[in-house]
Amino acid sequence: MLELKNIQVRFATGSHAVHAVRDVSLRVAKGEIFGIVGTSGAGKSTLLRTINLLERPSSGEIRIEGREITGLDAEALRAVRLRTGMVFQHFNLAHSRTVEDNIALPLRAAGVSEDRIRERVTQLLELVELADKRRVYPGQLSGGQKQRVGIARALANEPPLLLCDEPTSALDLETTESILDLLAGINARLGVTIVIISHEMAVIKRICHRVAVMQDGEVVEERTAYDLFATPRHALTRELIEKSLNLTLPPRLLAQSKGTLIRLVYLGETAEEPILASTARLYSVHINILHGRIEYIGDRPIGILIVALEGEPERIEDALRHLEIQVAKLEVLRHG
């Protein structure tokens, strides 16, 4: 569907040059929701904007449905943009135009007849559940409703590819979830390929199939969302996931707990098996669960537990060895 090859973006801002994107190559399959995550200033937004050439890469190739687009002339590029939707963090709606006129803009750009535009706007408003807001001005809408209009506008010409630039970063938690569900629904029902960038792991966790993690203009890790959460490799990924899972033990608990403190990550079906109970029985150790949660990425579970083991030191060693085989990851936080 989409292929980026050796993309470089350099800006010359006054005296010093900025190397915003460094040699990034990515492939996004048809029907996929592909996330790009990273801290602010990592170059995610710049990278996304190269896909429809809002930002021209200094070098590299961009292929959409097999077609190289960096060499296209203005009119051919416009044709590509008509078939590439884009959703923005701050919605970027024209405040002087009604919801209907905002959504109609790409249709007018495509030369669609006014009769057909009216029909299409009706369909789109139903899709984003704003049928009653047709003649309203954006200033009268809430943030979530504005983004729904933005999404309807982006989908007006039935593009096979939708680019989302931090689409939920200006929204509250509840609205974020409803917008993400809308995007996931659009992906599932209409088969639209989505590239979404965000600095929030929660966004990635909720809807992305595959993820690229960016730092200083480079992609440092690129994997399925599940693998990324289950076994993060890069330090930045680990940090981001740590923050998003919020599995830090309250200091009081940490001070009061006795024994060897470990963190376990277990995946898939094993997440539902009673590993701890069997280990406790087999090695005669006390296992005390201090903290834990099960996350679902897609519909596959990842279990994370912080437990304290108490008992004979040799027994504990054996228990740890046994556990290590059973789980995806075992980390000793404190020796007893």
Binding site: L54, R81, N92, L105, P106, A109, R153, A154, N157, L163
Partner: peptide, 18 residues
């Protein structure tokens, strides 16, 4: 005028005149 709105129109394939 908010440059974001102009950018959105460009991104969605609007002509200069539009």
């Amino acid at each position: 005028v908010n440059t974001g709105v102009v950018e959105a129109a460009r991104a969605l394939g609007a002509t200069h005149w539009l």
